[in-house]
Design a protein around this nucleic acid. Structure first.
Lengths: 159, 159
DNA sequence: ATCTTACATTTGTATCGACAACAATTGTAT
DNA sequence: ATACAATTGTTGTCGATACAAATGTAAGAT
């Protein structure tokens, strides 16, 4: 039983060359993982140029969002897109690049406080327009209303 | 229409605790990465139980899709959800577990042919229902029509 | 005061992935 | 026939990552 490829838009089943008919929920699972990898691949060039990994960039964004306030490790971990087990060493890398600083919290010495440096802020500012262009490029096939629908569905999925 | 936030569904902006208003395309990018990580996390238990990594499972699925025909390395790489650089060593792991076999191709001795073993097929068969349940559980907040819409939008995004 | 438990981060270890160098085989041009 | 290029896969290296155990700190119970 062969599918009608000719009239159909290229779908996830074509992309992964599935030989069997997938159920809608299976398709969604695969589609989401596949699409997120697709996005990562398409963004790789950007991260390579900036000499940051996507996780490092993510942490810098989180710190900028603190607007001058420090963040401690557990806060950062909570907010990261993908919780990784070893934020310590990620911060080490950022410190070596002088993009953040680390100091132990006065009121609770178990905690450490992490600040983004001016150099870090400057780097982010420089990257902003590139990231923006990249986002626009990668989402150019969907109009705003479609993007909204997509976001709503993703939010609802995780609800 | 004030205090609209109170009645609003939890969105990606709440999830990542963004302090700034994001544009729709930014939201989509983050939402996709975040959701795929969410799915991976939620599926982790399954992979741990089966003693397979998600990539190994993915490769076994691809081989089963071959329906008895072998696949060579480059074919597998093409079809993997996330292209990894070192499929050789991934196959090594699967061979050690006796889930696949490897032999050089007769007609083109640069190529190798990879077959899934009966043990591999049996493992997949055993996992099928678990995977199915997992999929259903993870997509339970969306009905079929919503899943279809989601799939269409993802396909269109990558088009 | 000491003990236990919880919290916050760090460190050890083993594995994974990216990248590059390499080897073997096949294809092609002269 | 020979040389050169392209294909296909393997191996070495190194940084990144996951997971678990260890460390240091705080708070509560007895």
């Amino acid at each position: 039983m062969y599918r009608q490829q000719l009239y159909k838009q290229m779908s996830i089943e074509d992309d992964i060359k599935s030989t069997i008919k997938l159920k809608e929920d299976q398709k969604t699972m695969i589609n989401l993982l596949y699409t997120s990898n697709w996005l990562k691949e398409k963004s790789m060039g950007f991260f390579k140029d900036s000499d940051l990994t996507s996780e490092q960039y993510n942490v810098l964004r989180i710190l900028r969002g603190q607007k001058g306030n420090p963040a401690n490790l557990s806060t950062i971990q909570e907010r990261m897109l993908n919780k990784m087990s070893n934020t310590t060493r990620l911060i080490d890398k950022l410190i070596k690049k002088e993009l953040v600083t680390r100091q132990t919290c006065e009121s609770n010495r178990r905690k450490i406080e992490i600040y983004i440096t001016n150099k870090g802020l400057k780097l982010l500012a420089d990257l902003d327009s590139v990231v923006d262009d990249n986002n626009k490029e990668l989402t150019k096939n969907l109009n705003t209303s479609e993007l909204e629908t997509l976001n709503k569905l993703l939010d609802k999925l995780r609800k």
